[in-house]
Design a protein around this nucleic acid. Structure first.
Length: 511
RNA sequence: GAGAAUAUAGCUCAGUCGGUAGAGCAUCUGCCUUUUAAGCAGAGGGUCGAAGGUUCGAGUCCUUCUAUUCUCACCA
């Protein structure tokens, strides 16, 4: 028997219909005219010899360098029997000069049918116009792709050396929904994503060059773990079983450390079924790294150097602007225990305090707490409310309560405290790291107490993963692990204030 | 989850006290062979986010809904 498909909000049959406006109808007609005239509006290839930027770089006065360029028409200025237009390729824009006398009547007439948004190939030679703009004098012009939808036209003008954009394509919803248009029309958007790619490449190369292995671990997991978050669930039909999209890959990477690798890392898409705002997207990227025989102190030094080097590499500077603050990424970053941080920013010494005393302190500070939460969470609440937002310059907050960190190793000299740090920049967490707990007996106790929290209704508490426990029962060497939020790191290094501006296709509700 | 704001032409935006829908750019027609927010003359283009309601009459007032943005809450 066929099951009736469940009706969801995003039933694909409910997609908006193609609606034709006058401009689209006209472009469709032009496409047909071109076909009727024997001109293929979608040829297969074009021999490009130069990017726009290369034409500028190679330009010499009095030298007519032959070039072949291609790109999307962004502006057109027709002046009867001669025309100027700009095309945009992956490197920028270049002006083309087209003269009827030289390209012939047929080509010039074809040109007159072209629209802003069409993609063309031009062969010709470089020259400089009367007004001094390096341009391409066209000898041939070929339509490479007919565009059927009008792109938003933003006009630019230079005023006192500064570029002023008129009527910019600025509707955020449209920009996110139609990122392809955003990328065409707002060139700085491309810059952010090029930088994102450079950041990831640099980090990947940096890890690989130290001999660590880039690996891939399951996204579909029968038991999720490694973080405290609610998961997305899905279903495998053939196995008829529930699966979860990973919230972290920590437990799998540690299995690989058990297996004998000294260092493993994965740039991982993780999925958390939680709220969406400018710091949270339901799917986000995190690089997790585990290195055997190291501890969290080593990791702190590694990551501050890494972030500083990455900044130098992509920005040529250790200073960046983030959420309205100028931030220096010059190491070493300040190190402050969570207890000391709370003392510094609230004036309360919570060292060695009982749960009731902590609850009193929190209440005294004006915090309203869920009566179910215990010491570790209370400390976390106080920290999150009164300290974290004030940590603008990079700060390692270290030595967290054990209760908040079920996968971290206990501090040898401080009971109730684990060897853990978070890196806070601009008031936001960028990294989370600890010396990994490798005593299988204690790890089991910790996970079982998580399971109890879960039974009490904490949906984010972890699940006992027997296979993970089995793995570390074979023996996992001492090990330091870290998760670095790539989206937030990119925000930090590109000065973007919203995660949506560093993710090509941020999650939006269906149109 | 709560609050606020926004939604009008392809894009960016006006639209007053409720009285027949406006501009710039884009598009179309004509002129223009070094322009660059090209220019000049003319034209077309709208289910005013959706559904109800009030009214002789609603882009405008009311209700509900939808989406987005911002703030707050949540987010190891």
């Amino acid at each position: 028997m066929q099951k009736e498909p469940e009706q969801h909000k995003n039933n694909p049959a409910d997609q908006p219909q193609l609606s034709l406006n006058d401009q689209m109808l006209r472009r469709l007609e032009e496409r047909q005219h071109l076909l009727d005239a024997g001109i293929n509006p979608y040829p297969s290839q074009f021999a490009v010899t130069r990017f726009s930027s290369q034409v500028f770089e190679a330009f010499q006065d009095e030298v007519k360098e032959p070039v072949s360029v291609a790109g999307r028409i962004m502006t057109i200025r027709k002046m009867g029997k001669a025309s100027f237009f700009h095309i945009q390729d992956s490197k920028g824009r270049i002006q083309i000069y087209l003269k009827k006398d030289e390209v012939g009547e047929a080509t010039y007439n074809t040109f007159k049918l072209l629209d802003i948004g069409d993609i063309v190939g031009v062969k010709g030679y470089s020259f400089k116009t009367k007004t001094g703009e390096i341009s391409v004098h066209a000898e041939t012009l070929e339509l490479l792709t007919k565009s059927l939808r009008p792109i938003p036209v933003a006009k630019e003008k230079e005023v006192d050396g500064e570029k002023v954009v008129f009527d910019a394509f600025s509707d955020k919803e449209l920009r996110y929904r139609q990122r392809y248009v955003d990328l065409i029309v707002n060139p700085e958007v491309k810059g952010t994503f090029i930088k994102r790619s450079a950041i990831v490449s640099f980090m990947r190369n940096s890890f690989a060059s130290r001999g660590w292995l880039e690996v891939e671990t399951p996204i579909l997991q029968p038991i999720y773990g490694g973080a405290a978050a609610r998961p997305f669930t899905t279903h495998h039909n053939a196995l008829d079983m529930q699966l979860y999209l990973r919230i972290a890959n920590e437990l799998y990477l540690k299995r690989l450390i058990v297996g004998g690798f000294d260092g493993v890392f994965e740039f991982a898409k993780d999925f958390r079924n939680e709220g969406i705002d400018r710091f949270h997207n339901p799917e986000f990227t995190q690089v997790e790294l585990y290195v055997a025989y190291k501890d969290y102190n080593w990791m702190m030094q590694m990551v501050e150097e890494l972030i500083s080097e990455t900044a130098q590499k992509v920005n040529q500077s250790e200073v960046t602007s983030f959420l309205g603050n100028e931030i220096s990424l010059k190491p070493p970053f300040r190190r402050l225990s969570i207890i000391d941080a709370i003392a510094e920013y609230t004036g309360r010494d919570i060292r060695g305090k009982s749960e009731d005393e902590l609850r009193y302190t929190a209440k005294d500070l004006g915090l309203e707490l869920d009566p179910k939460i215990s010491s570790g969470k209370i400390i976390d609440e106080i920290f999150g409310e009164f300290v974290e937002p004030k940590l603008i310059q990079p700060t390692f907050i270290i030595d967290y309560p054990t209760e908040m960190s079920p996968l971290a190793k206990e501090h040898p000299s401080q009971p109730g405290i684990v060897e853990r740090f978070e890196l806070i920049v601009g008031g936001k967490e960028v990294c989370n790291s600890f010396s990994e707990l490798n005593d299988p007996v204690i790890q089991r106790e910790r996970l079982e107490s998580q399971a109890k929290l879960r039974q009490r209704g904490d949906e984010e508490a972890m699940i006992v993963d027997e296979d993970f426990l089995r793995a570390i029962e074979y023996g996992m060497p001492p090990c330091a692990g870290i998760g670095i939020g790539i989206d937030r790191l990119v925000m930090l290094l590109t000065g973007q204030d919203s995660i949506r501006d560093v993710i090509f296709f941020p999650h939006l509700k269906p149109e």
